[in-house]
């Protein structure tokens, strides 16, 4: 199935052995990323409730805000999937259009997250204010840093796609970026659930 031969049919990103190994290698990287985020989630869970003199999460978390961020990132993951779908149909224009929509939604998410962090800081919850808020900002901040990196990566890739068009190399690079972007939403699902929803309930 994944032999060493060059393929002449099927998706561009799987044509050469090297490209197939690159995609597999990126999956292994995502496995390591899951382990990284697991340690941050574990720290957050252990330090849950240790807010010292800072406000409790129930006082600061708001459902409309959390839902807006969730829908922005979820929709961007969907549009990124459509971008890959367009790429496999051979449509560079469709790919670029949907990638730029994905980028705009990602920027929207990032804007809300920055606004959220500034708002919490004004309310007295910062990285330094308590064990709980340290673990909160490290966990959500690490995710936000990943989103920022993903946005920069997508901008560079869009420039390359415009210059070189769709070929085996750019298709593979786009597919790997797509995996990364979907992965950011996978992590956010668990952030939304275990940080925001549980933070509002417990």
């Amino acid at each position: 199935m994944s032999g060493h031969s060059e393929l002449t049919t099927g998706p561009l990103e799987y044509r050469s052995h090297e490209d197939r190994m690159t995609v597999l290698g990126f999956w292994l990287f995502l496995g390591a990323e899951i382990a990284l985020f697991a340690t941050l989630f574990a720290t957050y869970a252990v330090l849950f409730g240790r807010t010292a003199d800072a406000p409790a999460p129930q006082e600061l978390f708001e459902m409309p805000m959390a839902l807006t961020m969730t829908f922005l990132l979820l929709t961007s993951s969907f549009t990124c999937g459509i971008a890959i779908h367009e790429m496999r149909r051979g449509s560079l224009k469709g790919l670029l259009t949907w990638l730029i929509i994905t980028l705009a939604l990602g920027l929207g998410f990032l804007g809300f997250e920055i606004y959220e962090f500034v708002h919490y800081a004004h309310e007295g919850a910062t990285l330094q204010s308590s064990a709980y808020w340290s673990s909160f900002f490290v966990l959500t901040g690490t995710h936000g840093a990943h989103v920022t990196l993903g946005i920069c990566w997508a901008v560079l890739l869009i420039i390359q796609l415009k210059k070189r068009g769709l070929n085996q190399m750019t298709a593979r690079k786009t597919f790997v970026l797509g995996l990364y972007w979907h992965f950011l939403d996978v992590i956010w699902i668990f952030l939304f659930t275990s940080v925001y929803l549980i933070g509002m309930v417990v």
Binding site: L30, A32, A35, A38, A42, S77, I189
Partner: peptide, 30 residues
Amino acid sequence: QLFMFMHLTEKNGSIQVGNMLHAFFIAAVI
């Protein structure tokens, strides 16, 4: 996300599925 958006089962699917299950197991243990 993994199965409908990320094409987890394509090409080296069995290794990729095994790796993801392993990663989820590690996360649960941690």
